[in-house]
């Protein structure tokens, strides 16, 4: 279980003046801190800004960027925009699932290292197909390059 630092949440809330309309940036900052939205943090925020749990949960689950589940150390986003799709991003995605031993719907790999997200266009269509690892773009991916990338990350973890 992730421990939530309520002082930190307080400082985020203070920055936005406990303003209900700023709930999305507030959650973005919390997520930047924990990589996901811990339930305890959200409930705390709801109480502080006067939203009900139902409403806050409704907002948090509407936007794909928010995750209520813990994420892996490496968040790999595979772009599936039209340009990437036309240049066979599905194959890259498949290779990624295969090498991480994950399947669609999994939040995190068994070793806790990886989270796979399929995103709808990273805006780097010229380099299609692309993926990002913790925000760093890897251009012109192929299944082989994907496998190599994961091996490298695993290797880096071991040493």
């Amino acid at each position: 279980m992730t421990k939530v630092d309520f002082k930190l949440i307080d400082s985020i809330l203070e920055k936005y003046g406990c303003d209900k309309s700023k709930i999305i940036p507030i959650m973005q900052e919390i997520q930047a801190e924990y990589k996901f939205l811990p339930e305890a943090a959200l409930m705390y925020v709801a109480d502080k800004i006067g939203e009900t749990y139902a409403e806050l949960y409704g907002v948090a689950t509407f936007y794909k960027d928010f995750s209520l589940n813990e994420k892996g150390k490496y968040v790999i986003k595979v772009c599936n925009g039209t340009a990437c799709h036309v240049r066979k991003s599905d194959d890259v995605q498949e290779a990624l699932y295969e090498i991480t031993g994950m399947k669609p719907g999994d939040y995190i790999s068994a070793d806790g290292l990886f989270t796979i997200e399929r995103v709808a266009c990273l805006g780097a269509c010229g380099l299609a197909p692309v993926c990002t690892v913790n925000g760093v773009v890897h251009p012109q991916m192929t299944p082989d390059k994907m496998r190599a990338l994961i091996m490298d990350l695993r290797e880096a973890e071991r040493s």
Binding site: G58, F62, Y63, D65, A120
Partner: peptide, 26 residues
């Protein structure tokens, strides 16, 4: 600046306004 949070539908004008107001972007 208002940063989106991953919802294509927020490109629709009224949904975007909902989103800026901190609601579900419908």
């Amino acid at each position: 600046i208002c940063k989106g949070a991953g919802a294509f539908v927020c490109g629709e004008g009224t949904a975007m306004q909902e989103s800026i107001e901190g609601k579900r972007g419908m």
